[in-house]
Amino acid sequence: MSRIEQKFAQLNEQGKKALIPYITGGDPKPEYTVGLMHALVEAGADMIELGIPFSDPMADGEVIQKAHERSLAAGTTLEKILEMVAEFRQTDADTPVVLMGYLNPIEHMGYGNFAHKAKAAGVDGLLMVDLPPEEADNVAPLLKDAGIDMIFLIAPTTTAARAAKIASHASGYLYYVSIKGVTGSATLDTDAVAEKVAELKKITSVPVAVGFGIRDGASAAAISRVSDGAIVGSVLVKKVAELAEQPDQIAAALQEPLSEMRTAMDA
């Protein structure tokens, strides 16, 4: 069983849902990321999505675009992201880490090389925004051999037939994108999400986590009632942006909204 599967099984036993924060690795500077990851876990994160910065984050709104820019300007590379995960793993063997980003840096490193290094670092899953299952033939078997789950996205525009196909390739969890749009935009329609997630649950046993548009305790709780987990990104990354010049205060600033979400979800 992968670390992600174990985590969902364990939460299931406890009658809890997964709280999955996203931060961009290396934002505002590479040396702060591992500390922030531990702080997220302390505040109630069950898993962490760690963003790999990319020069052209096409699917992200302004908040996360800026995070990628800050991170790259501070010298973050994919190699360094993997080092961060390895360092995090030295003191946390339980919390799954999913790398999230765009395909090109991974392709450039070489899929075999990446799979090998990611496994060694203790990465549990990979979510590439611009890699649908149809294009994943080169990389999927290598990740599978390395025991790394491939997380795929399902969108409001995904047809039932396509969803079934995507689900058949997925492991770890499915990421349901709650809105048509980029990260950090619009507000969420919980009823519409509930309906879609219910349809997905009929065709797959892979857990379904929901992201985009979750910003506080209420929205996290609402989403976790109708799915297996809530993914929260832009709200946290905005805090990092605000405190980029006072990095010592970032951890506490991330913990506050996250704890609120944890409490609301567990209530």
């Binding site: 649908p132 294009e135 996205l153 995904t158 396509r162 994108v177 048509k180």
Partner: peptide, 18 residues
């Protein structure tokens, strides 16, 4: 599938697939 040898294809976020 839109490939020219190893090139081309459709590397997009899922919302655009449809």
């Amino acid at each position: 599938r839109g490939h020219f040898g190893p090139y081309g294809g459709r590397f997009v976020s899922e919302t655009l697939s449809y």
